[in-house]
Design a protein around this nucleic acid. Structure first.
Lengths: 211, 211
DNA sequence: AATATTTGCTAACGAATGTTAGGTAGCGTA
DNA sequence: TACGCTACCTAACATTCGTTAGCAAATATT
């Protein structure tokens, strides 16, 4: 039952076919959406018949789960680690955004599917996913609250700010291509700078300016 | 046999049946996604049979078009108007974000469908939609460029910044509920403040200004 | 009262969907 | 050699899909 190929020399893409399937599925789901992407579409991309897919997977939804859940795990774990550090709120926010961006820019297809198609998970998984997301948002709010309390951040609505930050960084996979020379770390620096320091060269006095 | 149970006496069905259908369709598409939402689902929400929907519409996609295209028009027109004003870049950006937020917070269901399901438009429409979006992004970049040139804004990557701003405001319909007392104008003020002035109370030296 | 429009019905269509059953060729290993 | 495993095949299934045809009651218009 167990694959005893555990010699260290396995750097070659031997563990491939299923992984290749999952990669192709992520790309297909990204492009057409989970519901609109058929197993026959996926089979065509793989160069085989639709029924043959079931030699590798149990169901279509298993593919979606294998895209969403590992990503959710990796994101959650990273943020929890950052929260445990004893550094300023500003540094925490910077590290949190960097880790988040690092994860999603290294998995752009998966991230887009993760963000947009999670609702097609069936029931134990969907709820689990949503509560993980809620906890993630609340952990981010914790950082903001700390920063506001000790004067590092301005007094903003924590919830709105957290959701706004998240959706700003979550749009990155839409335009990020690793071929164009820009690294995830550079992106993290750029976005963190914009969001923390703002666009303006000098802040405006009052809170309201519209009339 | 027609159901002659007209006793129900709906309060004031001022809007036509077709408008009601389009509103319900927007909500359904938002909740399940366009591809996963069936005409039979929609019929059930309307309390009629699926085939009866076709007394009001020509096709499922017509519903999607009637959700996406008016919204795209209203957004584009507003931004073009702002661009024509002779005011500072900062004021332009503020007005642009305010108008954008005003439109999407007044049509939350439609906005979410508009943002996530446009790809299911068939071909003349999808391309038209994409080019409108591209022009919208470029108009926003124009404001940023103006602000950077005349020193109102810090030197950031215009494209990345524009996309980041857009996705930040576009997440608003996800949490905005008009019942909770907060007005679109207040949201616009909050978000503009965060994005323009940043989170920090005092900007950091930002050593990572390599490029 | 006669007519037209709106709004709904039942029945059914062909096409597409995810998935199962059962089989086969090739390959590495005991 | 025999075995088991991976990776694929053809054929077919039950459902669901968007949509059409044809008809009828209610409502509005004349």
């Amino acid at each position: 039952m167990m694959k005893s190929v555990g010699i260290v020399t396995e750097a070659a893409p031997k563990q491939s076919r299923k992984q290749e399937l999952e990669q192709k599925a992520a790309l297909l789901f990204r492009e057409k959406g989970y519901a609109a992407a058929s197993m026959r579409d996926l089979a065509q991309v793989m160069g085989i018949e639709a029924a043959s897919l079931y030699s590798h997977i149990k169901s279509k939804e298993e593919l979606l789960q294998n895209i969403c859940l590992p990503l959710a795990q990796e994101l959650s774990q990273g943020l929890t680690e950052v929260l445990s550090l004893e550094i300023s709120a500003r540094e925490k926010l910077s590290k949190a955004l960097s880790h988040h961006l690092s994860v999603i820019t290294r998995n752009t297809d998966q991230s887009i599917v993760f963000l947009q198609e999670y609702r097609h998970l069936s029931e134990p998984f969907r709820s689990e996913f949503l509560s993980m997301r809620k906890e993630y948002e609340q952990q981010l709010m914790l950082i903001l609250r700390q920063g506001i309390r000790n004067g590092e951040f301005r007094k903003t609505d924590e919830k709105i700010t957290a959701l706004t930050l998240l959706s700003a960084v979550n749009s990155t996979p839409q335009w990020f291509r690793k071929e164009i020379g820009i690294t995830p770390e550079t992106v993290a620096g750029l976005l963190t700078d914009i969001l923390v320091n703002g666009l303006a060269t000098q802040p405006i006095a009052s809170s309201s300016n519209t009339k």
